[in-house]
Simulated scan of single mutants.
Amino acid sequence: MSEQTEHVPHGGAKRYDVVVVGGGAAGLSGALTLGRARRSVLVIDAGRPRNAPAEHMHTYLTREGTPPSELLGIGRAEVAAYGGEIMTGEAVAVERPGDGGFRVVLADGSAVLARRLLVTTGLVDELPPVPGVRERWGREVLHCPYCHGWEVRDQAVGVLATGPMAVHQALLWRQWTPKVTLFQHTAPEFGDDEYERLAAREIRLVTGEVTGLDIGKGRLAGVRLKGDRFVSCRALVVAPYLAARSGLLTSLGLESEEQEMFGHAVGSRVPSDASGATSVPGVWVAGNVTDLSAQVIAAAAGGVRAGAAVNADLIAEETSRAVAARGEPFSAQLEREVCERVLDARRHGL
């Protein structure tokens, strides 16, 4: 445990070396790193993980196919084994008390104090407003082929076009199945080269607006289009807007920035450097709140990097304080005073 900070009351609030806001893979990995570095750390988790609708997570080496809730349970236990604390609650504001640290206020009115802050609040998937999409999200309504492509390999997959990246999506999913249908839906007209690429990869194009999903026997059977047309598919790919959960940081003057791909806005993120450090001293971010494309394993790696960077920053601060404290009894002014007293004593024969 850090010798600088103890778990002691301060104005009714506990003080920690680091408060981590967000208890997903990034937050727990950061907390684990900090706990192993003998830091006092608190994880505040609102209990709304982005991947909660998914039954399993994928491409996480040694954890392939693990339910997301199981991973979080294991992670919490590992953090606790190194002295880390987990609190269920929602952080709603961050204040600067004036001592260089942070005061994190929770929805119930309570607060905790921290020397450093690691925010891993993730993002919100803003889904297309098509009836049935939200209800089947994470099941048969999908986004990332690296997360779910294997599970729908060789099946009929539809791609809902809502922007200029739709052709790119359809071509990407074609790697997992030859049965791809691109629903033009609300996307702008495609160019001649895009039509040529779709035809070359034998991707079916269906015009008209999708009005809803057709569910049969507890799973997706297909989509309905205007005019009550029906097209069967076993999975539907959508492109949500990936909005960073960054509201907590606005009180510190830290705003999110829009991210583009191929000239199209795909989401927002909190800007940071490679370690997760933001433009606000003492505040780090990790996971999807700063990296929109991070899968679970990448988010966990980001948490480790940020945790190590936070610890290094605390070490630098503690070392500076130790140097200053060590030098105080032997300051130049004090040395002059001692010398003057000694010389004066000798002059007077003492």
Rank of each mutant, 00 (worst) to 15 (best):
M1N: 11
E3T: 12
H7L: 14
H7C: 05
G11E: 07
G12D: 08
R15Y: 01
D17W: 09
V19D: 06
V20K: 00
G24K: 10
G24C: 09
A26Q: 09
L28A: 07
S29Q: 09
G30E: 05
T33S: 15
G35P: 03
R39K: 01
V41T: 08
D45K: 06
R48N: 09
R50I: 03
N51V: 01
A54G: 08
H56Q: 12
Y60C: 01
R63K: 10
P68K: 13
P68N: 09
E70Y: 08
L71Y: 13
L72C: 01
V79W: 00
E85P: 03
A91G: 05
V94S: 05
V94N: 05
P97S: 05
P97R: 11
G100W: 07
G101I: 04
G101S: 10
A107Q: 15
A107M: 09
A107R: 15
D108W: 13
V112D: 10
R116F: 01
V119P: 00
L123W: 00
L127G: 03
P129H: 12
R134A: 15
E135F: 01
W137F: 12
H143E: 01
Y146A: 04
C147W: 11
V152Q: 02
R153H: 11
D154P: 00
G163H: 14
A166Q: 09
A170V: 08
W176K: 02
P178R: 03
T181H: 01
H185W: 06
H185T: 02
T186E: 03
A187T: 11
F190S: 05
G191L: 10
R197W: 11
L198E: 03
L198R: 01
R201S: 02
T211P: 10
G212D: 06
I215H: 12
A221E: 15
V223C: 12
R224H: 15
K226Q: 15
D228K: 07
R229A: 15
V231F: 13
S232A: 14
V237W: 13
V238L: 00
A239M: 11
Y241I: 02
L242H: 10
A243M: 09
A244L: 08
R245P: 01
S246C: 04
L249N: 10
L249H: 11
T250S: 14
T250G: 08
T250F: 09
S251N: 06
L252H: 10
G253K: 14
G253E: 07
E255N: 11
S256E: 12
S256N: 08
E258I: 00
E258Q: 15
E258S: 13
Q259V: 12
E260N: 08
E260T: 15
P271M: 06
A274E: 15
S275F: 00
S275T: 04
S279H: 02
G282F: 12
N288W: 08
Q295G: 06
A298Y: 12
A298F: 14
A299C: 01
A300C: 00
A300G: 05
A301C: 07
R305E: 06
A308D: 09
A308M: 13
A309M: 06
V310E: 06
N311L: 05
A312Y: 00
D313L: 09
I315V: 13
V323A: 11
G327T: 04
S331K: 13
A332W: 04
E335A: 15
E335H: 14
V338I: 12
R341I: 04
V342G: 00
V342I: 15
R346Q: 12
